[in-house]
């Protein structure tokens, strides 16, 4: 992995740990209202300042990170699992199964993703689980498409033929021989997707469809601080920095994993 990939991975790990151990790091409750310190600019006491209800922004960012990053990563893993299952079945089975499943995939991909996620969130009602389901319900399709393509190219290779000739059942061929070959590819895509999901989750929270107040997420923090942009710009500034930083790290990590994977597969071929 290149230097950029390593730095991105390090930043992500740091964000994870800071979010998980936030209660040790900041002496403030993220939801504690303090009417004596409303909209205070960053100071030694409140490193990133306070919001319109006197809540410590650093505490809210760290607690919010748990939700924003957690939801995105889990949704990426869920999309990956569903997409991989469908892609494996579709590619291996071929024929009518393949045609039907790919028609569904095309249908989902023909929707503008953000609008469809909004629609699903509205149906399921607001909340973080809803966001997770909406992201996965939309996101699995691209995984399925990718994995199916990969399976189609693997299906004709000698080791699969050999496995069949040795008497492996279809289930064994798919689970033992094909699945492991698809995991690196799927993980790379999951990394790239997680970056996109951070943005989508923030967008949905911004529209009020994500976690409900007083729970902090990065998107909802920006949403509620919109009206205070002139009097307390730090309220808008810091959560956005976190979203951008996390998404950039996921994207760069995904890119460098992709490069690494390509190099390896080239070596295998040559």
């Amino acid at each position: 992995m290149g230097l950029i990939g390593k730095i991105s991975a390090a930043i992500l790990v740091l964000i994870f740990f800071l979010s998980i151990f936030s209660f040790l790091l900041v002496p403030y409750d993220p939801n504690a209202i303090d009417l004596d310190s409303l909209k205070e600019p960053p100071s030694p006491r409140h490193i990133l300042g306070t919001d319109n209800k006197g809540r410590d922004i650093l505490a809210r960012i760290l607690y919010g990170g748990k939700i924003s990053v957690g939801v995105s990563v889990l949704a990426a893993l869920m999309s990956m699992t569903i997409g991989m299952a469908i892609g494996l079945i579709s590619g291996y089975a071929g024929g009518k199964t393949d045609t039907t499943l790919m028609a569904v995939v095309d249908l989902i991909l023909s929707f503008p993703a953000f609008l469809l996620a909004i629609g699903i969130s509205l149906v399921l009602g607001e909340g973080i689980y809803t966001v997770m389901i909406a992201l996965s319900a939309v996101g699995w399709a691209s995984f399925a498409r990718l994995i199916r393509g990969h399976v189609l190219s693997l299906k004709e290779s000698a080791f699969i033929e050999a496995a069949r000739a040795l008497g492996c059942s279809h289930a064994r061929v798919v689970l033992v021989h094909l699945l492991p070959q698809c995991i690196p590819l799927a993980l790379v895509m999951a990394g790239l997707k997680a970056g996109g999901y951070i943005l989508t989750e923030a967008g949905l929270s911004f529209l009020g469809l994500g976690a409900q107040p007083p729970t902090a997420t990065w998107g909802s923090m920006i949403s509620t601080s919109r009206v205070f942009i002139n009097s307390a710009p730090w309220m808008v500034f810091f959560p956005g920095i976190m979203i951008a930083l996390t998404t950039i790290s996921f994207n760069l990590l995904g890119d460098s994993l992709k490069d690494m994977y390509d190099i390896r597969s080239e070596k295998e071929v040559g």
Binding site: F206, R226, I229, V236, F237, G240, A244, T247, N251
Partner: peptide
């Protein structure tokens, strides 16, 4: 380019608004 893809539009929009309008 990577930063452009990674910034939430509502955030970059608000920053532009803060700078140019306010």
């Amino acid at each position: 380019s990577v930063s452009g893809i990674s910034m939430p539009v509502f955030w970059s929009g608000l920053l532009l608004m803060l700078f140019f309008s306010l």
